[in-house]
């Protein structure tokens, strides 16, 4: 089990010595069950840091955002930033390193192992508790959560209320870290990976289209999925003409060459295109943090969509995103033995 005191002490040490500019971690939220991401810059704030099953967010996003802010501020503070990273978060950081988004020296990874469990799915928990309202959730041994409600604390089997992605997690231990808290547990044996995707594939074409058609129709195109995704770090989104950057030095030729692949209106066809482009652009890059699905205001099953190609990456191409920053990416590499029989 993770000793949070050690985590706090480590963060405090980093800030006291001034070796890092900021520590991105989790602290107790003032609004609701889930922890909130915190960027702390003072050693004294380190005491606020927590790590429990409510720490669902992928903090790799904050590294991406921090880079943008530093650039906007024209900051010349070149010290690294520290980040608390679960197994999935560390894979995201690895993908970002693979794509040279930042250098290894510029980030200090404080790895935290989820060990036998993972993080909580707030919706599942609410369903489980019925009328009771969860106030806090903590690890309770190897395979349970201690859930505190207004009626006291109870122990719930983790598998019952754990996030789907954690149930299918292939590596709960950070793959990349400068320091790691908690022990490595390789074999978790909860669900087989890609279970949900495989179940969906078994459905008929008609049913699948009926399902996705409904989902795409409901999309508001609020772009919350894009905003929360650490891989969607482009300044300009190819399928969102609103995001096109017009700078003083943008030439007329550049403006003329902007492609409006889809219409802005949240029509079904355009939303379908948007989500498919995102899924394609995430192929071999998505590390299954499922943040897109969690933040979607209309509950579109984006994790299901985006892990479809991750399944191909893993099973067909033996490609495991976020495993090695030195590997070429999935689509900028090939093998002679790649599938060929689908071609006529």
């Amino acid at each position: 089990m993770i000793d949070v005191a050690q985590l706090k002490a480590h963060a405090k040490g980093l800030l006291e010595k001034g070796t890092v500019r900021t520590v991105f971690g989790y602290r107790k939220s003032t609004a609701g069950l889930l922890a909130e991401p915190a960027g702390i810059t003072e050693a004294a704030q380190a005491d606020d840091l927590i790590f429990d099953p409510s720490c669902v967010q992928n903090l790799a996003l904050y590294l991406v955002n921090d880079k943008k802010h530093q650039a906007e501020k024209r900051s010349d503070d070149k010290r690294p930033v520290a980040v608390v990273a679960k197994g999935c978060d560390s894979r995201a950081i690895t993908v970002l390193l693979q794509e040279n988004h930042f250098s290894r020296e510029s980030v200090h990874v404080i790895g935290v192992s989820c060990e036998g469990t993972g993080v909580v799915d707030a919706r599942k928990l609410a369903r489980k508790l019925g009328n009771k309202k969860a106030l806090a959730v903590a690890f309770d041994g190897a395979d349970a959560f201690a859930v505190t409600t207004n009626e006291g604390t109870q122990s719930i089997a983790a598998a019952e209320v754990m996030a789907e992605r954690c149930l299918e997690c292939r590596s709960a231990h950070p793959t990349l870290s400068d320091v790691v808290f908690g022990e490595a547990k390789a074999e978790r044996g909860l669900h087989t990976p890609f279970q949900a995707v495989k179940a969906k594939i078994k459905e008929s074409e008609e049913d699948r289209w009926a399902y996705w058609s409904r989902q795409f129709d409901r999309c508001l195109r609020c772009y919350a999925c894009r905003s929360v995704c650490p891989m969607c770090y482009c300044d300009e989104c190819v399928v969102d003409s609103i995001s096109f950057v017009i700078a003083p030095d943008t030439t007329a030729e550049e403006k003329a060459n902007r492609i409006k692949w889809i219409e802005r209106s949240p029509a079904k066809s355009e939303s379908a295109m948007y989500h498919m482009v995102r899924a394609i652009h995430l192929a071999g890059r998505c590390i299954d943090c499922a943040e897109c699905e969690r933040v979607c205001p209309v509950n579109i099953p984006l994790r299901l969509l985006n892990t479809r190609l991750e399944m191909e990456a893993f099973e067909t191409f033996q490609y495991n995103p976020g495993s090695d920053p030195e590997l070429p990416t999935l689509t900028s590499s090939f093998r002679d033995t790649d599938p060929n029989s689908f071609i006529r």
Binding site: V197, K200, I201, E205, E206, D207, R208, W209, A210, Y211, W212, S213, A272, M276, A279, I280, A283, L305, R308, L309, E312, T316, F317, L330, T331, S332, S333, F334, D336, D338, P339, N340, F342, I343, R344
Partner: peptide, 28 residues
């Protein structure tokens, strides 16, 4: 070879969301 891998992925995605299987094809 790069095309083959990319087209394979696109085809799988289109099948997954339920576009009719035969609409997207690759040939040599």
């Amino acid at each position: 070879f790069y095309a083959r891998r990319k087209i394979y992925l696109v085809q799988k995605l289109l099948q997954f969301i339920g576009l009719e299987n035969d609409r997207f094809r690759m040939s040599w």
